[in-house]
Each structure stands twice: as structure tokens, then as C-alpha cells.
Design a binder for these strands. Structure first.
Length: 478
RNA sequence: GCUGCUAUAGUGUAGUCCGGCCAAUCAUGUCGGCCUUUCACGCCGACGACUGGGGUUCGAAUCCCCAUAGCAGCACCA
């Protein structure tokens, strides 16, 4: 039987691979990044080799300095087997050097045409005047560009491709531009390579054998091919997967940033966001994220992924480990008559009795979920305690002890309900994407900060914090 | 508009290269049942798809053509 997480084999991979995950440091990583990171990671683990984290920070306008911290953190959380980290901003001299070599080979020229003018010419499949310049002149003008003799927008180094190419996007695309209006947080530069140039140079120099990335890069792959051709290099094997959306979630860093700035979201780990930090905060395991991404694979079809699939992966991981505890949402105080004080000892985990029990003392008054009282039943089973008959006394619900026999409760189709003693509880807020629920929980929940537990009959939650106002927990999923 | 890619159940996915073993795989979901002092887990069962139309062929999810739909690119972003 086929492994659900198995990926198709890669060509020429038998002797190991060199792959890379190359994000733009513009913010924390999200599910979209996770797909690329997980796919590449899985192949490196399968074939052995190197896995490069390459920070693509050649556009200072798109660099968020904080991301130099958050991106490696996020990738570590995802447990990807990164073997080395490379910053493109450290490699500017290398790119300049290869630019000179490309010019010498006749593969690039320095263009000083106005943008709009160039676009018109390109559309018409016509060469711009700069295209015919001598190699020497291109070289000299490129040095002048590096020396700061051109202002922003005045010059760019273009790769000589094919003016007749049916796709105008591939005709003489730019490789370098001048950028002085925005300072780079890490380096002092005025000339930056464009993505297609730095990526082609780096993939070759770092020895990348296979590249897996989104299909939004298909045109870039063709552009990069021209660079490989000029240098006589063999390109890596490429594979492009389709666009992925997730129901109800924004996977755009800029949109998330705007939402945070406007106060619509509490931060990058707001549980309504698709960032890895938000998933972590909800109690989604990195392994569940990776498995989901591997199950999706690298098909070229666009997909609308469903949370259900991710949740199912996570539930499988979390269920055997999560201790069971009780949370009573919207608690109602009810007096129980006819029963002696006693101690109930529910199991910490029904599948693993060895983990022991916790103690809940019953003494006349209990807190039960409000919703349970609205049901059209006359009998209730207080879980791990006894049966009660529901009655009312002056508009208030009252319980009367109705025996210990579980079979009787089943026969009467009595709901089995979690409860808590009046005294020994902690206030608890359960945060869900649809809104918060207030209630009380067992005091033992306070020992579970940062862990995923199951609130029985409610769902899995991650205990986020314990403060003076009680416990804050996030609903992971049911 | 131009250039290109893709199209299997509610969702994701296998099968498509090399046509028959596919009345189409697996997971998830929904419903029902069993188990159970949780509405969880586990187990059993049911539901549910080859975008449409032509063609080639003894035979098409698979090959060809057309249509339709979606997506990507057409940035001095990555």
C-alpha cells in the first residue's frame, strides 16, 4: 500500500541532493512557506545531502529586519534539517563579479533607457539603443553604476535574451538596478541584483541540484535558464507546485502586516492568521504541518486546502499524549440533594490508565455547563460520579441523587456531563477563532502551560497562560 | 490581450508518461453502528469523483482535437 506522505522520486538524486528554501525576509513564515520548506526537507531527508536556508534579502524595500530572527526561528520550529544558512546580502560582491563575467561574454548590457520606453520597445520586439553597445562600454558603465554615477531608476543591467521570444516577459529582463531611496539593514549598497540574477548565480554556486518552488516562478525559471546558458552551466532540476489557499485565511505577509497595524489582529501569532506562530499558539504540531504538506505533495494544480485535513493530522499526534481535564463552559451552580460528600478520580487518559487519575471532591454543589441544562432530558450522569435527576425549585435547577449505576444512565439516554466542585476551580477563557468562551476548569490545568490537553467533550486546547484572571487556553480543534 | 500550465468525490490525493488488471486508491469529511463513565481515540459499514463535447481504438480517467473553467507570468518584487 502506498504511503500517504510519499513523494514522487526526483531525477538524478541517487547520490544525494542539494536543495534550498529561499524565503524573502519580509515577516514570519506561514503555511505557504511551510509547503516549500517541508517538500524540500522531505527530499533532502530521503536522498541525503545539504539543505540550504537562503535568505533572499536583495530588495531592501521588502526586508523586515525582525524577520532575520523570526524566519530561522520558524524554520527551526518546523524541524527542517537545515545544514547551512546563506544571506544574499553578504554576497553582493559575488553577484557584481558574475555580472562582469556575463557582460564579457556578451550576455548583458547596461541600459539607461527610460522604463516606459523600454517596455514599448520590448512589446514591439525591438532592441533598445543600449543593446548594441560594445562590451567595453557596458563594462565601463556597469563600473560607473557601482561607483554611484547613476541615480535610482537611471540605469539597469539587462540580460541579453531573445527579443523575438513569444513571451514578452522573457525579453531582455533586468539583472541589476540602482536603489538609493531605501537603506538596507545589513549592508551599505546602492546597486542590487534582481531575484532572477542572484538566484541563478546562487543556485549554481551553492550546487543546488533540485529546486522545488511555487508555480509563480515558472517564468523566472525560464529567465534563469538564459543565465545558465550564457555561462554554459547545467541548471538544476526544477519542479513547480500550484497555488495553495486555505479556507478563510489570509496568506499574504503584506496583508497580515496591514491587519496587525490596523489592530484587526493581535499580532503575528493571532490565531486567525495562517502563520506558523499562530498554528504553534493553537497547539498544532510542526509534524502535523509537515505531514499535511507532504500529503498535498507538489502537484501543479491550484488547491483550496481544508483545515479538516490539518486537524486530522494533528489530532492523530496529539490524542495519545493529551491529558484529559475538565472545563465547564458558562458554568451554572446547581445544588445536589441526597448524596454524601465524596471524591471522584477520573483517569488522566482513558487509553493509558497507568498515567493515573486526578481528584475532584464532591460536596453538595456542582458547576455544570449551562447548555446541558437546556436539554430535554430528566436524567444526567455527572461523569465519574453518579446519576442525578433534574428538577427545578423556584426557577432554579436542582439535582437529586439518582443512583451510581452507569447502566441505568445509559438506559435512560442520560447525557454524561463534566462537572466541577464549587470551590476548587480556576477561571478559564477558551479562545476560538469564532470567539471566546468563558468558564472554569480544574486547577491542574495550571500545570499544563504550553501543553496541549483535551478538555473532555469540548476539544483539544493549548494552555497558553495562567495569570491573576485565570487560565487562557486556545482551542486547537475538536 | 499575449505566453504558458492545470482540470479525479465537500476537501486533499493515487492512477495519466508506457490505453485493458480502474464498475477508479488512500486520507479527511458527513451519516449509521460497535466500543467507551468525552461529542475524543479505535473498529465496522454507508455516502461521494474521472469538467463538457467530439475523435482514434476491440477497449480511453489515461492518447488527439475543440470548448469551458481556474491559475501563473507579462515589475528596475521575491
Amino acid at each position: 500500500m502506498r504511503d500517504r506522505y510519499a513523494l514522487p522520486p526526483l531525477p538524478d538524486a541517487e547520490n544525494g541532493v542539494v536543495m534550498r528554501f529561499a524565503p524573502n525576509p519580509s515577516g514570519p513564515l506561514h503555511l505557504g512557506h511551510a509547503r516549500a520548506a517541508a517538500l524540500n526537507d522531505a527530499y533532502v531527508r530521503r536522498y541525503g545531502g545539504r539543505y540550504i536556508l537562503r535568505i533572499e534579502d536583495t530588495d531592501p524595500k521588502r526586508v523586515d529586519p525582525a524577520a532575520y530572527e523570526t524566519v530561522p526561528e520558524d524554520i527551526a520550529w518546523l524541524e527542517c534539517a537545515i545544514t547551512e544558512t546563506v544571506f544574499q546580502s553578504d554576497r553582493l560582491e559575488t553577484y557584481y563579479d558574475y555580472a562582469r563575467r556575463l557582460i564579457e561574454r556578451g550576455g548583458a548590457y547596461l541600459c539607461t533607457c527610460e522604463n516606459e520606453r523600454f517596455r514599448e520597445l520590448r512589446q514591439a520586439k525591438r532592441a533598445c539603443p543600449c543593446r548594441s553597445q560594445e562590451t567595453e562600454e557596458s563594462l565601463a558603465r556597469f563600473e560607473a553604476m557601482l561607483a554611484g554615477e547613476y541615480a535610482e531608476g537611471e540605469a539597469s543591467l539587462r540580460v541579453r535574451t531573445d527579443l523575438e521570444h513569444p513571451d514578452p516577459a522573457l525579453r531582455d529582463f533586468p539583472a541589476f538596478r540602482v536603489l538609493t531611496s531605501t537603506l538596507h539593514p545589513r549592508v551599505d549598497a546602492t546597486v542590487y541584483p534582481l531575484m532572477n540574477f542572484s538566484v541563478a548565480i546562487d543556485d549554481h554556486l551553492l550546487g543546488c541540484t533540485h529546486v522545488i518552488r511555487g508555480k509563480d516562478h515558472i517564468a523566472n525559471t525560464r529567465r534563469q535558464q538564459f543565465i545558465y546558458d550564457w555561462f554554459g552551466w547545467t541548471p538544476p532540476h526544477f519542479r513547480h507546485y500550484g497555488r495553495m489557499g486555505i479556507e478563510g485565511v489570509v496568506l499574504s505577509t503584506s496583508e497580515m502586516r496591514a491587519g496587525i497595524a490596523e489592530g484587526r489582529y493581535g499580532g503575528w501569532d493571532d490565531i486567525r492568521l495562517g502563520t506558523l506562530r499562530a498554528l504553534a499558539r493553537r497547539g498544532i504540531r510542526p509534524e502535523a504541518v509537515k505531514r499535511s504538506m507532504l500529503a498535498i505533495g507538489c502537484g501543479e494544480t491550484d488547491i483550496q486546502y481544508s483545515w479538516e485535513n490539518l486537524f486530522a493530522e494533528n489530532r492523530q499526534l496529539v490524542d495519545p499524549e493529551a491529558d484529559r481535564l475538565w472545563f465547564v463552559p458558562e458554568p451554572v451552580t446547581v445544588e445536589v440533594t441526597g448524596a454524601m460528600p465524596q471524591v471522584s478520580r477520573p483517569l488522566r487518559h482513558p487509553g493509558d490508565p497507568a498515567r493515573g487519575t486526578r481528584e475532584l471532591g464532591f460536596d453538595r454543589v456542582v458547576l455544570v455547563p449551562k447548555d446541558e441544562l437546556d436539554q430535554d432530558v430528566s436524567m444526567l450522569r455527572l461523569k465519574d460520579l453518579f446519576n442525578v435527576r433534574m428538577g427545578t425549585d423556584q426557577d432554579r435547577t436542582r439535582f437529586t441523587y439518582a443512583g451510581d449505576d452507569l447502566a441505568e444512565a445509559r438506559a435512560a439516554h442520560a447525557p454524561i456531563v463534566q462537572w466541577l466542585p464549587l470551590g476548587a476551580t480556576l477561571p478559564c477563557t477558551l479562545c476560538r477563532p469564532e470567539g471566546d468562551v468563558h468558564g472554569v476548569c480544574e486547577p491542574a490545568v495550571a500545570e499544563k502551560v504550553d501543553r496541549v490537553i483535551q478538555f473532555e467533550r469540548v476539544g483539544f486546547v493549548r494552555v497558553d497562560s495562567v495569570g491573576p484572571d485565570g487560565v487562557v487556553a486556545y482551542l486547537t480543534h475538536r
